[in-house]
Write a protein that binds this DNA or RNA. Structure first.
Length: 167
DNA sequence: GCCAACGTTGGC
DNA sequence: GCCAACGTTGGC
């Protein structure tokens, strides 16, 4: 039986500054999983709340870093739920305007799948014709949760020498 | 350090 | 609703 479009696995790219939270940090988390919290942009929030589903693949990108690179792959292990950090006055991402009864901000949980060794450098992405239209590479692209096409996903795995079955 | 690209804020 | 000022992101 053919898979319905609604259940097809989708792919994403999540950005993180490694000085704040790196792929190595994720590997040190219990169960190598964590809530992807602190997203405070409405477009990214909409993806987390409405689109990202359990089983989806995630490219973990290190932004504002040296080197700029995709550090590895995660998978989504829990779909969108309210971001607890928004309700925590001691958290850097606290948002007093977010009402627990009607939360503004959302997270998903991700779990590490594979570290890229070596990481796939931004320069390698830029050199790959299959990635010419990748959102990440567009000038001024700031979206911290962004969709990745299946073609782009496969191209990144190829650059990383990771078999698709392993991701 | 520079600058493009946004997003937010606040006066009107 | 409009828009200027300002702040942030993030690559170069």
């Amino acid at each position: 039986m053919a898979k319905s479009a609604a259940s097809a696995r989708r792919f994403w790219l999540f950005k993180s500054e490694p000085t704040s939270f790196s792929f190595a940090d994720l590997l040190r988390c219990k169960g190598q999983r964590t809530a992807w919290d602190g997203v405070r942009n409405h477009q990214a929030r909409n993806f987390l709340r409405d689109e990202v589903q359990v089983g989806d693949g995630v490219l973990f990108y290190h932004s504002s870093a040296d080197p700029l690179a995709i550090a590895g792959i995660c998978k989504v292990v829990r779909a969108g739920y309210p971001d607890p950090s928004a309700f925590d006055p001691s958290d850097d991402h606290h948002d007093p305007k977010s009402d627990p009864a009607r939360p503004t901000w959302f997270v998903v949980d991700v779990q590490a799948v594979t570290a890229f060794d070596p990481p796939v450098l931004r320069t390698a992405l830029q050199a790959d014709p299959a990635l010419a239209d990748m959102l990440l590479l567009r000038r001024g692209s700031r979206l911290s949760v962004q969709p990745v096409t299946p073609t782009e996903w496969r191209a990144v795995l190829r650059l990383a020498n990771v078999r698709e079955g392993a991701a």
